[in-house]
Design a protein around this nucleic acid. Structure first.
Lengths: 267, 267
DNA sequence: GCTTGACTCTCCCGTTACTGGAGGCCTTAA
DNA sequence: TTAAGGCCTCCAGTAACGGGAGAGTCAAGC
């Protein structure tokens, strides 16, 4: 006969758990001292406890384990096992989806962090061509949120990068700016009324700006200053890539927004 | 402004859940009517609710979501994401292990079921050679449980089939039977004092017996009757395979025990 | 026989993320 | 005026335990 503490050591189940299993009728002691209330177990309980541990490791709920122990594996064990397996697999599927989303979130964050290292440094980069879904309009910049919303809904999981704006104007326009909202895509996908095309790659001058959007002007000044010094010929449209801004999950603090300005140059 | 029911429809969160989130400080309504206690939400709450749903889909606990919402993704988001990812992956690992064990359990059960279809039918089969760990002794059959226990502990996860006994005696011995307890192995594995070898394959006469072990005599009678009629020469040792017996998880009912008798014959 | 320390008991609460129900108030339409 | 539906609070329950309080029990040593 084992005391509850002894059984606990033998089975790796805590004393609390054993008491709980007693209460639940899963593992009823061989003998309970009516005076002291002490529980005493024997060999067969050791065995049963091991079975319970095993079934728990298969993620069976205690209620099922109770039934399984009662029927001693007679009923349609196979059905029960299959049901349990599909439940486990279902849960795995769900978790894998979460892990995948987390992975993507993490890599986006990592990318933002690496980009943040170059804040305010004018750089020359080689851009790869990139497939985008885009909507071009004339109007106010403040409407671009709606456009990105439409693009987001239209392409969903096909989206493969940060949103960007293309500016076709040569000088600043307040109310009738000519711009195009773009979302990079992983794969070609139809969407009603939204153009899908490839933005060309090439050599560009780039600068990562940290801060609210109303201070982007200074960043542009730097970029154009740099190009002027080197007599680079800027190509239209210029691009603004929203590396980290509001609306990708968190609003965040405008002081930490990251925006990359890219201006392709003639070779 | 939305009522709680409207927000519920817009976010797919139940009214109960929204109230709960209010109570928890996760999603506090914009305005609570002091007379009626009615909760009213606005656009920003719609957005926040979506973020919560998203973070829940990443399996974040509410407490973390609360902090994330408070800090608005400022703190070291990356660390939090990575921690969460490793937690999710850990859980996936655990579940996969369970799924694997379930799979094995299921295929064992399936095999037992297919074998059960041939109960009491004498058959001729071609046996594959099989790698086993084995202990040969002279003594009582009732000791074989201990031997299987030793084999089980010695080989653990390397075990790849049902336990079996080889009988070397030509007639029945009570106290000094010459027999060998075997466990099929997936791979060669050393174990102190336990022989690992390959049992030969070949043509055999087989019969699946359902019922307690003390009725195995009838099954043997059938097998040997069959061989006698056809003038087959039995080879020693004969084999008893415990397809379904006590001790593989459930004790089960002896009336449903399945044991296969295999006697190799000279070609 | 007494004390001490380890062991055990019961009872209750807390965890997580909700769901369900009772009983009652508010609003609106028929 | 009544009915329906929406909303409120409060309480309880879920799964599988863990923590802790306060009290009783067991075995050993003095």
């Amino acid at each position: 006969m084992f005391s509850i503490g002894e059984l606990s050591k033998l089975t790796q189940l805590s004393v609390k758990t054993l008491r709980f299993y007693h209460e639940e009728g899963l593992l009823v002691p061989a003998f309970v001292d009516p005076d002291s209330g002490y529980r005493y177990y024997d060999e067969s309980h050791l065995e049963t406890a091991r079975v319970i541990v095993y079934l728990r490791s298969l993620e069976f709920p205690l209620s099922e384990i109770k039934e399984l122990l009662r029927s001693e594996g007679e009923g349609d064990l196979l059905t029960i096992l299959e049901r349990q397996q599909s439940a486990v697999k279902e849960r795995i599927k769900q978790l894998r989806k979460a892990a995948k989303s987390l992975q993507q979130f993490i890599s986006e964050e990592r990318e933002a962090q690496t980009m943040a290292q170059n804040v305010d440094n004018v750089q020359e980069r080689l851009l790869e061509p990139v497939l985008v879904g885009s909507i071009r309009v004339k109007g106010r910049y403040s409407d671009c949120g709606r456009l990105f919303g439409r693009l987001g809904r239209a392409f969903g999981r096909a989206i493969g990068g940060c949103p960007m704006l293309l500016h076709y104007d040569h000088e600043y326009h307040e109310d009738d700016a000519d711009y195009e909202a773009c979302m990079p895509l992983r794969r070609k996908q139809e969407a009603d009324g939204i153009a899908v095309r490839e933005l060309p790659g090439g050599r560009c001058v780039s600068l990562v700006h940290r801060g609210p959007y109303d201070q982007l002007g200074r960043a542009y000044a730097k970029v154009f200053e740099y190009m002027k010094q080197r007599k680079y010929q800027p190509l239209t449209p210029s691009r603004e890539v929203y590396l980290k801004g509001p609306g990708m999950i968190f609003k965040g603090n405008p002081k930490n927004y990251l925006t990359e300005i890219q201006v392709l140059v003639e070779e």
